[in-house]
Write a protein that binds this DNA or RNA. Structure first.
Length: 115
DNA sequence: CGGCTGACACGAA
DNA sequence: CTTCGTGCCAGCC
């Protein structure tokens, strides 16, 4: 662990899982950020598709991946955004609540940075 | 084997 | 400020 080495033999989705696995507890990353890390900045949406398939439940912390604005994915596969919210709260991640009730992660404080 | 569709992001109008 | 088009992976009919 701790290695960000991406081999050529890895497919797009394998790279996604590889990167997401490195996200520390209590931190979040955006879909676009993951896409950029695997060298496919134009494929942010496919990152989400790959995670939806999530072949490694409990291994790939897909709940730590959020929208660019900090909002949660509407179709989270584990039990909806509510479950994702609970998991992140459990790790100490804090949210702001919009007037309309839209919860957003405070990215300024919890977005993971590589370095 | 071909086509549909799904956890996003961003520039242009 | 809002709306629309494009990018182009992978599993499932």
């Amino acid at each position: 662990m701790g290695s960000f080495l991406l081999e050529d033999s890895m497919s797009f989705s394998e790279r996604v899982y590889h990167v997401v696995q490195q996200i520390p507890k209590g931190c979040v990353v955006t879909y676009g950020q993951v896409a950029a890390l695997i060298g496919a900045p134009r494929s942010a949406r496919f990152v989400g598709y790959a995670l939806h398939s999530n072949p490694y439940p409990g291994i790939v912390p897909c709940h730590r991946v959020v929208f660019k604005d900090g909002a949660l994915a509407p179709g989270f596969a584990f039990g909806g955004p509510e479950e994702q919210f609970r998991r992140l709260s459990e790790e100490g991640v804090e949210f702001t609540t919009h007037d309309d009730g839209i919860r957003r992660v405070i990215l300024e404080r919890y977005q993971w940075r590589m370095g």
